[in-house]
Design a protein around this nucleic acid. Structure first.
Length: 374
DNA sequence: TAATCCCGCCACCAG
DNA sequence: CTGGTGGCGGGATTA
């Protein structure tokens, strides 16, 4: 039967000598796709599906997969039939924030109807307060909105929605790692489909595939948007995210090469909701994990990883003690939390420059004030 | 063997 | 009817 492949493709000159499934993965395709358009002018550049498919040497069907997932995090937006607008990777943090907001809201609203130990039902996600949530969250674009409304019956199973819900799973709970099986149960979704989205997100470096150390089961760890693609493209500088704690110390002892973690979507809002989602995942993990609870204390020992905040925040806290002007501290933290990402190093430098200037201005003002008070 | 997930059939919908 | 979309699961590949 495997000869069927060579039989089908045997004559094709474009077909590589040795068929490698890996080279054709959605993740690779995604990387190539981004490589193709990443330099383009965000918001104005148009992506044609046929064109992209041709240039990437894949069939059009696959483009739908990639594009739908990318659309779910704002990288592209559907403009018209066959046409997408390139929004750019810098849309990602904004989109993640929105997803987190939406996720927290949804969960909160539907909490009553979520009886089992899983995250909200698809129904409640797509029907309740999703009003244009899917695919229009980043653009406010009518076309997208319409598109998602048009096939409402389909959209609750769509890859795009699954992608978003998968992300919400991470963002709206405090977990750092989710077992594939549990994600499939929680969303709910076919594992197959999760692999599809996970591959794309992996290539974006939003998540990382790991192994549950005890069971060896596949799992994914949230990395957050760092402005770096897996293929090494550097799209922006690092952003700071308050450190997320690692979920379930009893199970999260995966290979700990962490070096934590920066993303714009780190704010700790709606604690209650987070806790609730977190607990659901905990339940799932336990359900799955019953007998594997003999502990490995090791991951707690990594002091670096388990500070409540990323280093910048630590510095900030120290700084704040020195300053003792709370308001200012808040503003600073806001400023660095929402530090924008720039493709361009020059822009980033410019931003850094203004930050510096602003800081020294603050210092001066502060000194002045203290003098006046004295 | 289990995990992974490509591939393309075909349903659905707008024009 | 045609063409664009995209859900879906069979079964090939990989681990």
């Amino acid at each position: 039967m495997s000869s069927l492949v060579s039989l089908v493709y045997g004559e094709s000159e474009t077909r590589p000598q040795f068929y490698s499934r890996k080279e054709k993965s959605l993740g690779v395709l995604c990387s190539n796709f981004l490589g193709l358009y990443n330099g383009d002018c965000a918001g104005t550049s148009t992506v044609g599906l046929d064109d992209a498919a041709n240039r990437l040497g894949v069939e059009r069907r696959r483009m739908y997969d990639v594009v739908n997932i990318l659309e779910s995090i704002g990288v592209v937006a559907r403009k018209a039939k066959n046409q997408y607008t390139w929004k750019g990777l810098e849309e990602i943090p904004r989109c993640l924030e929105q997803l987190k907001k939406d996720g927290l809201k949804e969960n909160f609203n539907s909490a009553g109807s979520c009886s089992s130990a899983r995250v909200c039902h698809r129904k409640s996600v797509s029907n309740e307060n999703q009003c244009g949530g899917l695919l229009s969250l980043n653009t406010g674009g009518e076309a997208n909105h319409l598109a998602s409304l048009r096939k409402n019956n389909k959209s609750d199973k769509s890859l795009a929605l699954l992608s978003q819900n998968f992300i919400k799973l991470f963002l709206c709970s405090n977990v750092d790692m989710i077992l594939l099986d549990n994600a499939a149960k929680a969303l709910p979704a076919k594992v197959r489909r999760l692999y599809d989205v996970a591959n794309v997100f992996s290539s974006l470096n939003l998540i990382e595939k790991i192994r549950h150390s005890e069971s060896g089961k596949p799992a994914y760890r949230w990395l957050g948007w760092k402005g770096k693609l897996k293929n090494g493209f550097d799209t922006a500088s690092e952003i700071n995210e308050p450190k997320k704690r690692v979920f379930g110390s009893d199970i999260t002892n995966y290979n700990s090469k962490r070096n934590k973690t920066n993303s714009v979507v780190g704010w700790k809002s709606s604690k209650e909701t987070s806790v609730r989602m977190h607990n659901k995942l905990v339940d799932l993990e336990h359900e799955y994990d019953e007998n594997e609870l003999k502990q490995h204390p090791r991951h707690k020992s990594t002091g670096i990883d388990f500070g409540p905040f990323a280093p910048v925040s630590v510095l900030k806290a120290r700084d704040a003690a020195f300053k003792n002007v709370k308001q200012v501290q808040d503003m600073e933290s806001l400023a660095s939390t929402y530090r924008p990402q720039y493709h361009n190093q020059a822009l980033y430098d410019l931003f850094a420059h203004y930050m510096e200037a602003w800081k020294s201005w603050l210092e001066a003002t502060r000194k002045q004030q203290t003098q006046q008070i004295c």
